[in-house]
């Protein structure tokens, strides 16, 4: 048993070395397939970060009537914070609202001028409320509109914002679905290409496999070396892909950060290093072994 295994491994390694050209070509294809798996793996946290980021930016504001005191508003804030759906609440006083407006529009002379013409501070004090989930805003709004302190409220801008919120989220979920669809299509295409490459590589040995059967080798003794070659090819391809993905994540980290500061592709890579390598190995070796197994089977029927 042990002798057989040793021979199978030796023969597999010899086959890999002797057909080095074909082996390298197969490794190259396999690197592409594993890269795709890596890309899908790395994109998943990136898209999560982007979606969370968009979600974080969504909030609703409750505007209070002109004459409501800030103590009352802070009391309402305490009440709102008791609602389980609410994540956090931020109080923006009339003055802060004005400051924010000036800060944002200081380069726009028309707006600044109209502000001067109005004279007094035209802004209302408000509470910016963020819920845990976008779908919870409706409930929060309902609560506010039916609460005992509704008389203090001038307006809740949820209804105004709802179409925008809905649109953004239908787009996000649309992109997500398209992403999943293309991921599956690419993955299937990649697997088929890898499988076919190995099949063609083994096609060359088809006659040899049949002769092995005819001289009395068992199926496993025939198949073993091809499975070993599949493992070697998958392993080397996974290692190469790991190095390439490390290089790319390291090299592009700053460039991506410049566009999206909250995404660090390099730290995603580092914190998922072992899982990622495991996925790469599983993709490479799994594809190599399964493709070899299926491709050899055809020639064993003698």
């Amino acid at each position: 048993m042990f002798t057989s295994l040793r021979r199978v491994i030796k023969t597999g390694w010899r086959g890999f070395r002797r057909n080095i050209g074909l082996s390298l070509a197969t490794i190259l294809i396999m690197v592409m397939v594993i890269s795709l798996a890596t890309l899908l793996f790395l994109l998943s946290p990136v898209s999560d970060i982007l979606i969370t980021d968009i979600k974080e930016k969504v909030d609703i504001s409750v505007y209070f009537k002109e004459d409501v005191l800030s103590e009352d508003i802070l009391e309402v804030e305490t009440e709102i914070l008791k609602i389980p759906e609410v994540k956090d609440v931020e109080y923006v006083s009339k003055e802060q609202a004005l400051e924010k407006f000036i800060e944002r529009h200081k380069d726009d002379p028309v707006l600044m001028e109209s502000l001067t013409e109005v004279g007094a501070n035209p802004f209302l004090a408000s509470l910016n409320i963020r819920a845990w989930e976008v779908s919870q805003y409706e409930q929060v709004t309902n609560f506010l509109e039916t609460s005992p302190f509704r008389s203090l409220i001038d307006k809740v801008d949820y209804h105004q914002r709802k179409p925008v919120i809905d649109k953004v989220f239908s787009m996000v979920s649309g992109f997500y679905k398209i992403g999943i669809f293309f991921s599956i299509v690419f993955a299937v295409v990649a697997v088929l290409i890898a499988f076919n490459t190995i099949r063609i590589a083994i096609y060359n040995s088809g006659e040899e496999i049949s002769i092995m059967r005819l001289v009395g080798a068992s199926n496993w003794f025939v198949r073993g070396p091809f499975l070993i070659q599949g493992i070697i090819i998958g392993f080397i391809a996974a290692l190469i892909t790991l190095l390439i993905s490390f290089g790319l994540c390291y090299g592009f980290d700053n460039k991506i950060k410049a566009i999206a500061p909250e995404i660090s592709i390099y730290s995603i890579f580092v914190s998922n290093f072992f899982l990622l390598f495991l996925i790469q190995l599983a993709t490479g070796i799994g594809l190599g072994v399964i493709s070899s197994y299926v491709a050899v089977r055809k020639y064993l029927k003698i």
């Binding site: 059967r213 005819l214 001289v215 009395g216 080798a217 068992s218 199926n219 003794f221």
Partner: peptide
């Protein structure tokens, strides 16, 4: 089919 190798090992071709 799994027994064929044993038979073929008794034959030299």
């Amino acid at each position: 089919r799994s027994q064929l190798p044993k038979l073929r090992q008794r034959i030299g071709t």
